[in-house]
Design a protein around this nucleic acid. Structure first.
Lengths: 210, 210
DNA sequence: TCCATAACATACGAGGCGTATGTGAAATAT
DNA sequence: ATATTTCACATACGCCTCGTATGTTATGGA
């Protein structure tokens, strides 16, 4: 790993190394994307690794090299989705004024995010069966940690009555995810979503009471 | 199907028919019990039908005759567990005095029931992945229907402020089940259970407010 | 220039599920 | 009372899938 930057023009050893690293990353990304698509469409169990890799012009050899196992690919896919979700949730809440109201808004925003079929199928449905309880996932803590922090802050500033922040966050999380699955399975998702959001607001009002 | 009861002593054609039906039922029950045990111990995917049936002195032939598929066995097992749970939940709530408090007690009781590893693994973890969203299960409605009915009654009698009973029930359900998985995964389940129950009481207080 | 390692592809073996088929006993029809 | 059909399984087969072991080629380092 010894090179001098200012002599690295195109075609230099350094650039070739960079190029190669990019190709490898592209291979990994292709597998990841193919896995995400296959898991979302067919479900974890029905997704065939042979099929999935062939779809992007590779073989199972590449997959097992990069991810170690079918489960390993699933872990990577779940982490990717979860990270995206956490980011989008953060964006949706970044300009909140009333912090107490923001807690309720967070739940509502989470419900809307959790409606996406890809998230439902991979993270909510197959994820626990394949990877075990979400509490043990490193990624899943991203969303939850934010909620815990927000609740704790409300307690610390006296904006809401004291409550166990983590416990409250987990309860809200469970309620919200369950609601999302209910909505997704409904004939009229929009109507059911409104019912769920109203009920959630009512429920959360008990938490944010002063 | 024409026989006269008072001439049916032991050894009669009728008795033989009864005996045979009992044997068939025993076979079914043995398979069901074996499936329940194997699914709880190994998880749905890792459970082998060959192994499972051999454990009770049968073959896969018997299994596919009675249940049609591995998934069919899973459905039967889930229904059995869910039915048991609904019954135990009903027992735990049958002598409640304060109906508003009973709604909270119901959540607490459900948390305790949902702590059982068999329920967690089969119904909560593997169930959704194998059978799809629980809303589509015929059995899952047993517990939920009871909760909906209780909430609706509280609303009708004016004991609590009006709320969408089904939506509220589903939210509580999700919160409670999530809490149960949190508790089960904890190092100190007893302590975490208390935190969850306290937080749930606080949360539900928003629902039962007049 | 030679060797080690990385990034894949190929080949192999082991289960597992579902189904098609076989079988003997019981139920039913004649 | 006998013949036929149906039931409750057991047996046998084929297909698919995953994981691993083994090449193979190209790159990085000495």
């Amino acid at each position: 790993m010894s090179y001098v930057a200012y002599v690295n023009g195109p075609g230099s050893v350094y650039m070739k190394r960079v190029k190669r690293a990019e190709l490898i990353k592209q291979t990994r990304d292709k597998l990841l994307a193919a896995g995400r698509k296959a898991f979302a469409r067919d479900g974890y169990h029905a997704a065939s690794m042979d099929q999935l890799t062939a779809d992007v012009g590779l073989t199972r050899g590449a997959l097992y090299h990069h991810f170690g196992s079918k489960r390993g690919l699933m872990e990577a896919v779940v982490e990717q989705i979860d990270t995206e979700m956490a980011g989008r949730l953060r964006d949706a809440l970044k300009d909140a004024t009333d912090r107490r109201q923001a807690l309720i808004d967070e739940g509502v925003a989470y419900i809307k995010l959790a409606l996406e079929p890809e998230f439902q199928r991979i993270v909510l449905r197959d994820g626990p069966a394949v990877l075990g309880a979400p509490m043990h996932w490193p990624s899943q803590n991203a969303c939850l940690a934010g909620t815990i922090e927000r609740i704790q802050h409300l307690v610390d500033t006296g904006e809401i009555a004291p409550v166990d922040a983590e416990a409250a966050a987990r309860l809200l999380d469970g309620a919200v995810l369950d609601a999302a699955m209910w909505i997704a399975a409904a004939d009229d998702p929009a109507a059911v979503a409104q019912r769920a959001i109203d009920a959630f607001t009512r429920l959360a009002s008990g938490l944010v009471a002063r």
